[in-house]
Simulated assay, not measured.
Amino acid sequence: MEKTLIGALEAGGTKMVCAVGYGDGTVLEQVSMPTTTPEETMEQVAAWFADKDVSALGIGAFGPTAVNPADPRFGQILETPKTAWRYFDMLGSVRDRLNIPCGYDTDVNVACLGEVTFGCAKGLTDVVYLTIGTGVGAGVLSGGHLVHGNMHPEAGHILLVRDPRETLPEGESGCPYHANCLEGLIAGPGVAKRWDGKSAGQMADDAEAMDLLAGYLGQALATFILCYAPQKIIIGGGVADHTPIVQLAREKCAAALNGYIVTPEFADLDSYIVNNSLEGKQGIMGCLELGRRALEA
């Protein structure tokens, strides 16, 4: 019997990645388009999928967004800095145009789902997926289920202790909401603000800069381990992909926990705290799995 086609939409604040594939994670066709106004963008997305004959669609959306089906706002973008998108019904706008079953979650949750279904976390039930780029987001799988509480984890905004070497002025960071959160101190805008507009990749050979960023990441990882008790932590995004901070943060994390966590997983940090394993496709592949689940629901 011919395989069922499933659509995948990785809906980012900068670009929309649309793909068609199968429930086994195979990606047949993929395209990206810029994120502009909600109406224009979603019209283009729906037009691309219109002749693809997909039976279901999985959507991983930028946030904050409402991911609990019991929430009356389910499928809406919430208090985003992209003001035109605030309270836009992303799920409804796609579903109304395509009239097919749709799964909906955050972009980092679907990336986590992709790694758990097809990647280095396959078979695990408790996983944290962290992405570090222009922002920091976290997808959390707990007890085999993606975490949805009153909203979804916003673990990129946990507050940290500033390093005494920090050169950002007190009270300032790359986050408009918090002066001392992980995103503000380690993501692209904070890096650029600290080092004259440079990217993390451009600073990758600066040992002191990498040590500073790794220290912040190590603090955060220690907190995630204590709160979520994951079996594996996977880190993606441009900052993680183009610098050595993941490797450096392992020892920073161990130092922060100071021998308190004694488990087989933590005894092998190289296998416990890792870079992403699906060559940047974890989000799209997670969306395919989300679409497959929507079809079978």
Rank of each mutant, 00 (worst) to 15 (best):
Y272A: 06
E29P: 11
K82S: 09
T263S: 12
L248M: 12
N258Y: 14
E289R: 15
M33G: 07
F266M: 07
G144K: 09
V27H: 07
G133P: 02
Y177A: 10
G156H: 00
E279P: 11
Y260D: 08
P244R: 00
F49E: 02
N109Y: 08
V128F: 03
Q30V: 13
G286S: 04
D205F: 13
C287Q: 07
G149P: 05
E265N: 12
Q76D: 13
A214P: 03
N99Y: 13
D71N: 15
L185G: 00
H152R: 06
D268K: 14
R250N: 06
D163V: 00
G21Y: 09
E39C: 12
G143W: 07
G92D: 08
Y177C: 09
L212N: 02
G114K: 01
A220G: 02
L221A: 03
P72V: 00
Q76T: 14
T134G: 10
G92P: 02
T26S: 14
N109S: 13
A256D: 02
M1R: 15
L168I: 05
V17G: 06
I6V: 15
D205Y: 13
V127Y: 07
I245M: 00
N276Q: 14
D268N: 15
L278W: 10
E265S: 11
A204I: 03
N109A: 11
G92E: 09
L130A: 03
E289G: 11
V20F: 09
A61G: 10
A220R: 00
G92F: 10
I6K: 12
L213M: 15
V31D: 09
G23R: 01
G236I: 00
M16N: 06
V262Y: 13
A46K: 04
T83I: 15
Q44I: 01
Q30K: 15
G174R: 05
T106I: 07
V116A: 14
L248E: 04
A70F: 11
L130E: 03
H152T: 03
D96M: 10
E166G: 07
E289L: 10
A204L: 08
I132M: 03
V94I: 07
G60C: 09
H157Q: 05
Q219W: 02
A179R: 06
D51P: 12
G75I: 05
G149Y: 12
H157Y: 04
A207E: 14
V274D: 03
H178K: 12
V31G: 10
I273Y: 00
A256C: 11
V27P: 09
E279N: 15
G21E: 02
G238F: 07
I284Y: 11
E40S: 14
I59T: 07
G7I: 01
G63I: 01
S93P: 06
P176C: 11
F118R: 05
T243I: 05
I233C: 05
E183Q: 09
T41S: 13
E10H: 11
E166Y: 00
P69Y: 13
C112G: 06
V31C: 12
L221R: 01
A66H: 09
D163M: 00
L288S: 08
L98C: 08
D211P: 04
M16Q: 11
V140G: 04
G149T: 11
Q30N: 10
M1W: 15
E296T: 14
L257S: 01
A56C: 09
G144A: 05
T80L: 09
I100M: 13
P169A: 14
T65M: 15
D241W: 10
D96T: 10
V45E: 01
